[in-house]
Structures are given as structure tokens and as C-alpha cells.
Computed example of a mutant assay.
Amino acid sequence: MTTLTIDPQAPYPPFEQLRRQLVEQIVSQHLPAGTRLPPVRRLAADLALAPNTVARAYRELEAEGYLVTRGRNGTIVAPDAAPDDDVRRRAADLAATYVAGMRELGLRGEAIVAAVRHAL
């Protein structure tokens, strides 16, 4: 697992920073399917976070299909969490088309990102 960092000055709460970093590592396959994640308490101690903060990030990632929790057997990256190359390529094409259309409307980066966040 690539190093995870929490920035207390970031505009996002710690659980969201952790969630985003884990998604990024799963999607980029730095955390491949089947990889076992550290226990909640250990990761919380490593990141100087409350255990509930890490547990919330894990729960949300499990609800989103990125992780599978097996009780005392730990939490692993879900078998189908990372998209294959074809899906990634199609997603990149869709994103490029969307951004081009938004730019034609005269919107800049932050407005485009805000529109995506609102849609999600």
C-alpha cells in the first residue's frame, strides 16, 4: 500500500481524505483485488486518527463496492473493485467528451468539477 496521509488543513474531513486515497489506489491497482487492508485500529494509530474515522471510511468503501469486510478475517479489496483497461479507456473518453462540452459552454475547471460533484 502506498503511503496514506491526512492533511488537517484540507477542505475535506479526514474520513473523506482516507476514502479518496484508497479509491485512487484501488482504481490505479496499487491496491489490487484481494489485498488485505490494515485493521481499523492499526491504521487509525498510524494516521493519528480516531478508529471511528477509519471505520467510517472502510464502511463507505464497502457500501460502494471497493472493499469486502470479513469480520475477524479482515478487510480486503473487492475482487471486482478496479475497472479493467477497456472500462478505464471508455471512462476516460466519456470524461474527455464531457469536459469538452462543458468548456464549450464557457465553464472552467472548478465549475466543471462542481457540476460533477453535484451530479454525484
Rank of each mutant, 00 (worst) to 15 (best):
L47P: 03
Y12Q: 09
D86L: 15
P83W: 07
D84L: 01
N52Y: 00
Q17I: 02
L47Q: 06
M102P: 04
G74C: 07
H118M: 10
Q21Y: 02
A45W: 05
L107S: 07
A33F: 01
E24C: 03
A82Q: 01
V68R: 13
L120H: 07
T5K: 03
A48L: 14
G106H: 06
P11G: 15
T53F: 01
A45M: 12
Q29C: 13
L43H: 09
P11A: 14
V77N: 02
A114I: 00
V99A: 14
S28L: 07
A44I: 00
T35Q: 06
T75H: 10
L107G: 04
V77P: 03
A81H: 00
L43D: 03
P32W: 10
R90C: 12
R117I: 05
A55S: 11
Q21V: 02
L43I: 07
A44P: 04
A78V: 04
D93Q: 15
P79L: 06
L31I: 03
A119P: 00
T97P: 01
L18R: 02
T69C: 10
A78T: 04
H30P: 01
D80N: 08
P38W: 07
P13L: 12
L4P: 13
E64R: 14
L120N: 05
A82D: 02
D85G: 04
A114S: 15
T3I: 13
D80H: 09
P14V: 03
A45I: 09
V68W: 07
T69E: 09
Q9N: 15
R70I: 13
A63R: 15
A91P: 02
D80V: 08
A33V: 01
A111F: 06
A57D: 07
N52I: 08
P13F: 11
A95W: 10
G65Q: 09
Y12G: 02
Y98I: 03
R117E: 08
V54W: 04
R20V: 02
N73Q: 15
R90G: 04
G106M: 08
D84I: 02
N73T: 06
A82W: 00
R90E: 14
T5E: 11
R90S: 11
R19Y: 00
A48R: 13
A96M: 11
A95K: 13
P32E: 06
L4W: 08
E104C: 09
T2D: 15
V77C: 11
E16H: 10
D93R: 01
Q17H: 05
T35P: 04
T2I: 05
S28V: 08
A48G: 10
L37I: 07
R20Y: 02
V99N: 03
G109R: 13
Q25H: 13
R72L: 15
L107Q: 11
R90V: 08
P39I: 06
L94N: 11
A81N: 05
G109A: 14
E110S: 14
P11S: 15
L18D: 01
A91S: 09
L107T: 01
L120F: 04
L120E: 12
L61R: 03
Y58G: 05
I26Q: 02
Y66R: 09
A50W: 01
T69K: 14
